[in-house]
């Protein structure tokens, strides 16, 4: 009996020693269906909005403002999830008005009033790939039905 108790005690010590390896808190947030859907919807909305950038910005201002609101929600949603700093950083890059993804594109559209089709096409391809990086990370998280 004493031998058995010592043995179990040793196992507990071993488990405690393994805590740094097996620690309870995950390194990254699990998959969220809501975050995934939000990213896919925003990708579609953003690319559709950008297609209109050959026309004057003022004509599409309400649509742009709606898109910016949705993106702010996505950042706040990402920020509110534990262990989700990488996805949050991705959204911050995507919507940064001084950057060169969706946020920066909308800033440039507003400044120049309209943009050339060649630029819209090339920028859209970049931004689409950027959204794919966000969606790819979410769908790669534990719990997604890959």
């Amino acid at each position: 009996m004493i031998h058995r108790c010592t043995y179990i005690g040793s196992l507990v010590v071993l488990i405690l020693a393994l805590v740094p390896v097996t620690g309870c808190s995950p390194a990254i947030a699990p998959f969220s269906g809501c975050a995934y859907e939000l990213a896919v919807d925003l990708k579609v909305d953003a690319l559709r909005t950008m297609e209109r950038a050959e026309e004057p910005f003022s004509k599409h201002e309400p649509r742009v403002e709606s898109l910016q609101r949705q993106m702010k929600k996505a950042v706040e949603f990402a920020r509110g999830r534990p262990n989700n700093s990488i996805t949050t950083r991705q959204w911050e890059i995507m919507m940064n008005p001084e950057g060169h993804m969706v946020g920066g594109f909308l800033t440039r559209w507003k400044q120049d009033d309209s943009l050339s089709w060649g630029f819209i096409r090339e920028a859209s391809a970049q931004i689409e790939a950027g959204f794919d990086a966000i969606i790819g990370l979410e769908s790669g998280k534990i719990g997604s039905k890959k």
């Binding site: 990254i28 991705q90 890059i93 060169h100 993804m101 920066g104 790669g140 998280k141």
Partner: peptide, 19 residues
């Protein structure tokens, strides 16, 4: 602008890899 957006795309891709 496009070259700078390429850099942002690399950052997003690197973050995906890190995640």
């Amino acid at each position: 602008w496009l070259v700078r957006s390429r850099l942002d795309l690399h950052r997003l891709s690197a973050l995906r890899s890190a995640g």
